[in-house]
Design a protein around this nucleic acid. Structure first.
Lengths: 207, 207
DNA sequence: ACCTGAACACCGTTCAAGT
DNA sequence: ACCTGAACACCGTTCAAGT
C-alpha cells in the first residue's frame, strides 16, 4: 500500500476487514496487517490497545454499516424487520467477522446505536416496561446469535451441515443435502421465517 | 495429576473442559494441558490432530451431555422444548465452550444425534418435507446461536450489556441495568420466551 | 504524534528418539 | 502404542529509540 499520509484507526479497520474477508480470521496477524499497510507490525499499537481491541473496532464498523443500511420509513414493525434483515446481510457479507464477536475485547459503541434504534421501534410497536426489555433481548440474541452460528467457520461450516443432512438419511433432507448452496439458501430462508415468527411474538407483548 | 495408566481422548477432553470452565478458553494451551495431565505438551497430538480438533471433541462431549440430560416422555412438542432447554443449560454450565464452537475444527458427531432426535420430534409434531427442514434449521440456529451470543466472552459480556442498558437512559431498562445478575436473569427469561414463540411457529408448519 | 526494530515470552506443531 | 524433548516457525506485545 502506497502511503503518503499518517494512518488512522479507520485504515487499520478497513484493511484488516478486507483481508479477513478474503483469507479468514485466523490469517490476520499483526505482522501481515503491518505489511498490508506498509508499516511495522507494531504500528497498530499506536491506535489499538490490543488485537482484541482491533477486532472489536472491526465489529463496531460492521454494526455501524448495519445502521446505515436500514431503509427509512414503513411501520414500526417494518423497521424492526428491516434492521434484522440488514443485520443478517452484513454478516452474510462479512461471515468471518461473526467469529470475531466471540473473540473481540471491549465494547462496540455502535451496538448502543443499534439498540437505541431497535428499542425506539419496539416502543413504537407499543411495548413498554419488562416486555420492552424482553422483546429487545429476544430479538437481539436471535439476530446476532443465529448469524454467528450460521456464519462462524464459513465456508467449512456449511459443508459440514450438508454432510450431516445427507448422513441423516431422511428423505425430507435429500434436497437441501445436495449442495453447499442449497444448505446456505435454506439457512437464509429459515432465518427469515424465524425472524418473522419472533417479531410476531414480540408484537403480542404490546400493551 | 497422578497417573498410573495410559491416557485416553476422554481424559484430555475432561481435564481441558474443566480447566476452560475455570480459567477461560484463552488460557488453555497445549503446555498447560500437558502439565495438568502430568505429561509432555506434545502428548495431546497422539490423540488429536490439532488443538482445533481437541476443541471440537470438547464441544462434542457437551453435545452428548445435552442428549443425556433431555428427560423422556411428554408430547412431541414437550420433547422439542426439553431438548432446547437442556441445550441452554449445558451452555450456561459451560459458557466458555460457546466460543469454542466458533473456533473448533472438524465435525462433532454428537451433533448428528441431536439432529436425529430433534427431527424425529418435529416429524411427530406433523412436519414433513421442506417445512421439516426449515423448522429444524430455525430451531437449531436459535438454540445454539442465541446461546453462543449470550455466553461468549462471559462474564465480561454481561457487564458490557449492563453498562449499555444503563447508558440507554430508558426507564424500562433501569431494573435490568442494575446488576450483572439482573441482566443474566432477564437474558435467560428472554431465551425461554423466544424459544416457545419459535416452537409455536414451528407447530404451525405441520401438515 | 507516529513509526521503527530489536527483543521477550510465549504459541501450536513436527519429528526423531525413547520405552 | 504412547510419550519425550528438542527444535521450528511462528505469535502478540513492550519499549527504547528514532523522525
Amino acid at each position: 500500500m502506497a502511503r503518503n499520509r499518517t494512518l488512522t484507526k479507520a485504515d487499520f479497520v478497513e484493511v484488516a476487514t478486507q483481508y479477513v474477508d478474503e483469507h479468514g480470521l485466523n490469517a490476520l496477524t499483526m505482522r501481515v496487517l503491518g505489511d498490508l499497510l506498509g508499516v511495522d507490525a507494531t504500528a497498530c499499537y499506536r491506535h489499538f490497545r490490543s488485537k482484541g481491541a482491533l477486532l472489536a473496532a472491526m465489529v463496531d464498523a460492521l454494526f455501524l454499516s448495519i445502521l446505515e443500511a436500514v431503509p427509512e420509513g414503513g411501520s414500526a414493525r417494518d423497521r424492526v424487520e428491516a434492521q434484522m434483515l440488514a443485520s443478517r446481510r452484513a454478516f452474510v457479507a462479512h461471515p468471518q467477522l461473526a467469529a470475531a464477536i466471540a473473540v473481540s475485547e471491549g465494547d462496540t459503541p455502535a451496538a448502543l446505536l443499534l439498540m437505541k434504534s431497535a428499542v425506539a421501534n419496539l416502543e413504537a410497536m407499543g411495548l413498554s416496561g419488562d416486555n420492552l426489555v424482553l422483546g429487545y433481548q429476544t430479538i437481539e440474541s436471535y439476530a446476532v446469535g443465529a448469524s454467528i452460528f450460521d456464519m462462524a467457520r464459513a465456508p467449512d461450516n456449511m459443508e459440514i451441515r450438508r454432510a450431516r443432512y445427507r448422513f441423516l438419511e431422511e428423505p425430507a433432507f435429500d434436497g437441501v443435502a445436495k449442495t453447499v448452496k442449497s444448505v446456505t439458501d435454506s439457512t437464509e430462508r429459515a432465518y427469515e421465517l424465524g425472524m418473522r415468527a419472533l417479531i410476531d411474538y414480540v408484537a403480542t407483548l404490546a400493551d
